[in-house]
Nucleic acid binder design. Sequence first.
DNA 1: AATGAATGAGGCTTCATTCAT
DNA 2: TATGAATGAAGCCTCATTCAT
Lengths: 197, 197, 197, 197
Amino acid sequence: MARVPAAERRNDLVNAAIQVIASHGVDGATTRRIAERANAPLATLHYCFQTKELLFAAVFERLTERYREVLIENDVHGDLVTTARAILRGLLNWYLESDSEFASASFELISWAQRQEEHPAVTVYNEAFNVVRSILARAAAGQDVTPGTIDQIGYVLSTLTDGFVVNWLTYADRARAAEQAEIVVEVFDAWLAAKLA
Amino acid sequence: MARVPAAERRNDLVNAAIQVIASHGVDGATTRRIAERANAPLATLHYCFQTKELLFAAVFERLTERYREVLIENDVHGDLVTTARAILRGLLNWYLESDSEFASASFELISWAQRQEEHPAVTVYNEAFNVVRSILARAAAGQDVTPGTIDQIGYVLSTLTDGFVVNWLTYADRARAAEQAEIVVEVFDAWLAAKLA
Amino acid sequence: MARVPAAERRNDLVNAAIQVIASHGVDGATTRRIAERANAPLATLHYCFQTKELLFAAVFERLTERYREVLIENDVHGDLVTTARAILRGLLNWYLESDSEFASASFELISWAQRQEEHPAVTVYNEAFNVVRSILARAAAGQDVTPGTIDQIGYVLSTLTDGFVVNWLTYADRARAAEQAEIVVEVFDAWLAAKLA
Amino acid sequence: MARVPAAERRNDLVNAAIQVIASHGVDGATTRRIAERANAPLATLHYCFQTKELLFAAVFERLTERYREVLIENDVHGDLVTTARAILRGLLNWYLESDSEFASASFELISWAQRQEEHPAVTVYNEAFNVVRSILARAAAGQDVTPGTIDQIGYVLSTLTDGFVVNWLTYADRARAAEQAEIVVEVFDAWLAAKLA
DNA sequence: AATGAATGAGGCTTCATTCAT
DNA sequence: TATGAATGAAGCCTCATTCAT
C-alpha cells in the first residue's frame, strides 16, 4: 500500500467515516470498515487519530462546516420571511439529495453523541444555530423583531427539519418525502405569518 | 432457580432491554447488559428469545402498544382541532416525563430498525399513524374534512413531535424543552387554523 | 406433548440418535436435535439416559445387534469360500442401501468411540468379529482349516469392507461404489484362492 | 509481542490444529485448544485465519502435501508390481509410525470434510490418487497394462490402506496392526498376481 | 413419572487498540 | 513515518445438564 502523508490520510478517513456511518450506522462503523473504505491500513487510522472517538470528533467538525456551508449557500439576502423560508427549503432539499451522506450521518450520530463526554452533538447544533441566527438577524435588520423571536424562528426551523428527516429516514420514500416537504413549508409559513402579524 | 414462568421472564427481559437501550443506546444494549438488568443469567435470555433480534422485535411490539395507549389516553373526544391539539400535547408531555425510557428507546431504535430486514420501525410508525388517523376521523365526523387533510394533520403531528424529541434528546434540558413544547403547539395551532379556515 | 412411557421413549431416542448421527455427524448430534427428532422434550432425554454418553452406549448396543442380524441374514450355510464371500457381499450391499443410517452412523462413531473410557467401538468390532468367526467356523467344519486362518479371513473381510466404506462415504457416488464392490469381491476371491490353495 | 512473521504463525497454527485433531477429534479441536497448543492467543488464530473453517482448509492442504511426499518417498522406480507393493508398504508403515498425527488427523477429518460445502476430503483423495496413478503409470511403462487396470490398482491400494487404518485406530494395538499389515500386503499380492497373470 | 424452565461453561468471532519495526 | 502483526476484552450464541414442579 502506497505510503500517504498523514494530512491527506486524515481527510480520507473522515470522509470514509461519514460514508460508513451513513450506510452502516454508528455501531456498524468499525475502525476496520472505515480504514478499508479510506483505502488505508488499519493501523494508520490510529496513527492519524489516536482514538476512534477523536476521529468521530473530526467527523463532527466536518459536519459542522458542511451545515454552515449549506446554510450560507441558501441565504437569499431577502427580508426575514423570505430568508427564513429559503433556509428551510434549502435544508429540506439538501436532506433529500440522494448522495447526502452528511445528512444521514449527522442524524445517525445524534444519539451516539449524546453519550460522549463532550456532547459534540450540542456543538454542531449550537454552531448551526448561530449561523442561522446571524443570517436571520441580518435579514431582520430593518424590521421590528426581537432577538427572542429570531431564536424561536431558528428553533421552529430546526424542529421542522429534524421531524422531516426522521420520517424520511424511516420510510426512505423520496416521492412521499418531496410531498411532505411542501407541507412542512406550509406549516412554517402559517406560523410565521401568525407570529409576525 | 426461582422458577418464574416464561411469560414473566420474557416480560422482564423486554423491560430490561428498553431501559438499557434508553440509557446505553442500541449498540450499547448488549445481551449481557440486558440480562444483567433483568437479573437473569445470559443463557436465560437466549432461552426466552432465541436471538437478540427476536428480543428486539418484542421490544418493538411493546413500543407499538405503548404508543397506542398514549394516543388513546389523550383522546379527548372533542372536535377536530381540540382533539388534534390534545394528542400533540399528550405526546410532548409523554416524551418529557422523566421516566419515559419508552420515548428515548423508541427513538434510539429508529435508525437501527431501518437496517433490519423487516423494517420494524415502519411498523411502529404505521401503527401509530393508524391510531391517530382513526381518532382524528371520529373527531372530524360531523365536519367537512377530507381524508387527505386528516392524513396531513397526522403527518404534521408526527413531524413536530419528532423534531421536538431530537432537540430534547440532544440538549437534555427539561426547562428549555418545556418552553419549546409551547412553541410547537403554537406552530401546530397556526397551521391548523390556516388549514381549516 | 403427550406423556409417553419411558421404555418406549428410550427406543425412540436411540433411533433418533442414529438418524441424527448419520446425517449430522457425531458432533452435530446434539441432545436437542436428537430429542427433537424423537419428538420428545429435551428433559426426557436425560430422564431416560442420565447422560448423552449413556444414550450413545445404547446406540452402540443397537448397532452391535444390527451387525449381528446382517451377518446372520447373509449366512448361506455353504462351504467356507462360498460363505465368506456371501458375507462380504452382504455387508457391501448393506452399506450401499440408501437408508442404511446404521452404516454411516457406526462409521461416524468409530473415532468418537476411541476417545471414550470404555472404548465401545472395540466392543462392536469384537462382537461382529465373533459372529463372523462362528459362521465361518461352521462353514469350515469338514475342511482342514486352522482357527488362525479363520481369524485372518475375518480380518480381511472387515478390512475390505471398511476400506470400501471410507471411499463410499467420501465420494457418495453409488454407481462408482457399486463397481468398486465388484473389485473388492475380486480381491477377496484372489486372496482366498491363494490362501486355501 | 514476539513479532513472528505471519507465515510462520500460520504454520504453527496448522501444526497445532493437526495435533489437536489427532488427539481430540475434529469436534474436540476447538479454536481455543488449537491456539493454546500453538502458544498463541486466541485472537491471533483469527488474525491469521479469518475463520476456523479456513484454518481447516489449510490443514487439508498440508495433509495433501504430506500424502504426496509419502507416496513419492516410497516410489522405488521398479516394475509395476514392485512399485505398487512398495507404495502400499510405505503407506502402512507411515500410518504405523507413532508420531504420525497426520494419519489420524486426516482420518478424523474425512467425515467432517464430507459435511463441508467444498468437500475438501474429495480433494485430498483425488490428489493422492493422481500421484499414485502417475507413479504406477511410469512403472508400467514398458508393460502391457491398460489405464483401467492402473486405476483399479490405485483403488485397491487405498481400500486396503483405509481398511487397515480403521482397525488400527479402533484397537490402537501396534503389535497386532503390524501383523495385520503383513496380511494386507499378502492380499494385495494375491490379487495383483491374479490380475496381471 | 415426566417435563417446562433455567443455567454455567464454553463455542466462534470481532472489536478497538498497541506493539515492533 | 507508516504499517503489518498481534492481542485482551467483549460480542452473540449453543451445549449438556439440572432443577422444580
